[in-house]
Design a protein around this nucleic acid. Structure first.
Length: 740
DNA sequence: GCGATCAGTT
DNA sequence: CACAACTGATCGC
């Protein structure tokens, strides 16, 4: 094959230089380029280091940062090549030359923090005690329509199993009922998770650094208010986690008061990460047997429900969520472990990496890499985006064994525009409204959750130069976000603000009528804004005094976004974490064709993979390390091109296009691959054909034959051979049945 | 005062 | 009517 017609477009070194790939910890971001959230993070950290022992901030403990600019595009650019085609069309004798093990980043565990005292008691979302305006409390209470509560149903009737029942999480398919383990640990063992970890098998024992440090004293102190835990720590170590039906949180049962025993809900299996003793977003199930660490993905009530100040296990949260938990729930500081976006901690031998979930502020996804090498992603609540496909961790860990997926909108009917479009639409509608009523004094009232939806009201405030007032609980929450732009528009005095942010439930006509009555003297009109996933195609309602507009705005993935995300990850298994009805045990059904690839036909899937250019632009993706004494081989093409002068080209391979292939493209015929016939799936529609026929000679190279008109001027791309190996690995994983 | 849990709201 | 995420109310301690 000749090199005629090949043009070297860009050395990978240049690409890497521009993307600061993999090598060093990311330099501090300039304020200018950071998102408010990121800015907040930095500040929060600086501010919070006074008391708390931070996890070791070794450079290697932070795998990578994805704090690069995120595109708002939902689909790859037209000219981009899709890597799924690359995977799918691997030639039949595709062989992979595995490199010497890349130096894996080892990460030190977050050190145990043992200090702090239980704090005083306070209600969640208590009323603020002081505002500059007397109406504030009144505002907080609006609307306070009294409802008569019907008589309540019997407690615990739903899913109530006998206390001797446990769920075996060996297999998601086989939830068998077993007898509760008879072994009960001592009070301190059971109440102190750190001690509890020690009781586990040797290989599962925690590092010294994770043990209770002021020797267990605190653990003992905790016993007094720690509910007794029924656990079996002497059972053999395995991936099995059992969940007791009876909870020690049923402290009432211990009091012998004769009161009917209160049992927590049984814990659905998807709350516990398989192969670990980690529970994600499951706090309402009492003590879960053998669960030693808890993770809270974000601070929304349906996720932290059950988390109270009595909580006494290690809790892993983002810094933002940590501030919210400290503020509203006040669990013992001892148990809060912060993990920031793109940070990796080793927890009980499991590498845990936090990823931005694109949900509400502080929302995380958790990527678990088990001792076994198994990789598990838990999305928490998230909104999938194409940008996530550039996350280095997905490229550096090509195999996801299990995906816990937020399937909130797992229905083809759910299709949302991008959040930026929602924001633009809100701004446009408000602008039109303001222009049409230019002579009027207008109060804008925007619905919101305690956290979430900030982008909408912040955009309005900035665009129209509005001051913002919000209810006291939300105001407190917003301060926890450490988002300077939000702080800068907020005011304590509702009279000073012409944009009020209130609970979503108050954005209804009758409620707004009541609300407006408080400000009639100050305004002529009120415009209510409802940002919600349900506001698709809803028409604004314009009234003489009260108007409302709905803004399609979702913080969960649309169906298409979900599909694309799952197709991108190609996990071996998927477990939905979203119940479809009232029964927490019944969750969504993720279409298996999104991730199960059987036979060749399935490998022709299109449309949901990132492009090669996305891959190349991914900052900090891992590069396999080559030691200097490994001889570097070149593809035959390169050898021809450089006539054996390997020294100049020692660390690259070639991704090249073939003139023959271009010709074939023009002629719409099959693409010949060097020395090999094409596999049957390499139809003319394949955009990229990858080949590596160098297994015999252990040559780490990959050739990618590009078939795309837009790249005819840039047919040859150099990549580092280690990247080629990574590509090979990805390709081989995706197409095992194409290997000899 | 606290936590559990329900119904109701958008 | 989907729904998530509250919000308010009651109950039992």
């Amino acid at each position: 094959m000749s090199n005629i017609g090949k043009i070297k477009i860009k050395a990978i070194a240049d690409l890497q230089a521009t993307t600061q790939k993999n090598v060093q910890p990311e330099p501090p971001l300039t304020t200018k380029n950071r998102t408010p959230e990121q800015k907040g993070r930095g500040r929060a950290r600086a501010a919070s280091t006074t008391k708390k022992i931070q996890p070791k901030a070794e450079p290697c403990s932070i795998i990578a940062s994805t704090a690069f600019k995120r595109s708002s595009k939902k689909t790859p650019l037209p000219g981009q090549l899709r890597i799924d085609s690359f995977f799918a069309s691997a030639v039949k004798n595709y062989k992979v030359n595995m490199v010497p093990n890349s130096s894996s980043k080892t990460v030190d565990p977050p050190l145990a923090k043992r200090k702090g005292n239980p704090r005083g008691r306070k209600r969640l979302f208590e009323e603020s005690t002081s505002t500059s305006f007397a109406a504030t409390d009144k505002l907080d209470a609006i609307p306070s329509e009294k409802r008569v509560q019907p008589s309540r149903r019997a407690k615990g009737k739903e899913n109530a199993l006998s206390e001797s029942e446990v769920i075996d999480l060996c297999s998601e398919d086989e939830q068998t009922i077993k007898t509760k383990p008879s072994v009960v640990a001592t009070p301190c063992q059971t109440s102190c998770p750190v001690i509890a970890s020690k009781l586990k098998s040797p290989e599962a024992s925690v590092p010294e650094t994770q043990l209770c440090s002021p020797k267990d004293n605190l653990c003992r102190e905790e016993i007094s208010h720690v509910p007794k835990k029924f656990s079996s720590y002497n059972s053999s170590p395995s991936s099995t986690v059992t969940i007791t039906k009876e909870s020690p949180l049923a402290k009432n049962s211990k009091k012998g008061t004769g009161r009917k025993e209160k049992r927590p809900k049984p814990c659905p299996p998807y709350k516990v990460v398989e192969g670990t003793t980690f529970c994600v977003d499951g706090f309402q199930f009492g003590d879960i047997d053998r669960v030693t660490h808890y993770f809270l993905t974000h601070f929304h009530a349906d996720h932290y429900i059950g988390l109270t100040k009595k909580f006494c296990y290690p809790l892993y949260v983002s810094p933002t969520t940590a501030r919210l938990v400290r503020t509203f729930i006040k669990i013992d500081e001892t148990y809060i472990y912060e993990i920031d976006v793109d940070q990796t901690l080793t927890v009980d031998g499991v590498e845990v990496t936090a990823l931005e979930a694109n949900h509400c502020p502080g929302a995380l996804m958790f990527f678990f890499k088990l001792r076994s090498g198994e990789c598990i992603l838990h999305t928490g609540d998230f909104r999938a985006s194409a940008d996530m496909e550039s996350l280095p961790i997905f490229w550096n860990h090509a195999n996801i064994d299990l995906l816990y997926l937020d399937t909130t909108y797992l229905n083809k009917n759910y299709d949302f525009c991008h959040q930026s479009e929602s924001v633009d639409r809100a701004v446009d509608l408000v602008r039109v409204f303001l222009e049409k009523n230019a002579s009027k004094r207008i109060l804008i009232v925007c619905g919101s959750y305690v956290i979430g939806k900030e982008k909408i009201w912040l955009a309005l405030a900035k665009e129209f130069n509005l001051r913002v007032w919000t209810e006291s609980n939300r105001s407190t929450a917003v301060r926890c976000l450490k988002w300077p732009e939000l702080d800068s528009v907020l005011t304590e005095d509702p009279r000073e603000a012409n944009l009020h942010v209130v609970a979503m439930g108050k954005i209804s006509y009758p409620s707004l009528v009541d609300y407006f009555s408080l400000f009639e003297d100050q305004y002529d009109m009120l415009l209510g804004i409802r940002p919600s996933g349900w506001e698709k195609n809803t028409k604004p309602s314009y009234g003489k005094r009260i108007s409302t507009i709905g803004i399609e705005y979702s913080e969960h993935s649309s169906y298409k976004e979900l599909e694309r995300f799952v197709r991108f990850l190609k996990p071996k298994r998927v477990i939905s974490t979203v119940p479809v009805g009232r029964d927490l045990f019944v969750t969504g059904d993720v279409p298996t064709q999104w991730y199960k690839y059987e036979g060749r036909a399935c490998m022709l899937s299109t449309g949901y993979q990132p492009s090669i250019s996305t891959f190349l632009a991914t900052p900090k993706r891992a590069l396999a390390k080559f030691s200097s004494d490994i001889e570097v081989f070149l593809s035959p093409v390169e050898e021809n091109a450089f006539e054996g002068n390997k020294d100049n080209i020692t660390d690259h391979v070639t991704i090249m296009s073939s003139p023959t292939e271009e010709e074939c493209f023009r002629n719409d015929c099959e693409i010949p691959v060097k020395n090999e016939p094409l596999g049957p799936d390499s139809s003319p529609n394949s955009e990229i054909v990858a080949g590596n026929n160098a297994m015999e000679s252990q040559i780490p190279y990959v050739e990618i034959y590009i078939k795309n008109e837009t790249l005819t001027q840039c047919n040859v791309i150099e990549v580092q051979k280690s990247e080629a190996v990574l590509l090979s690995r990805l390709a081989s994983d995706a197409s095992d049945d194409w290997l000899l």
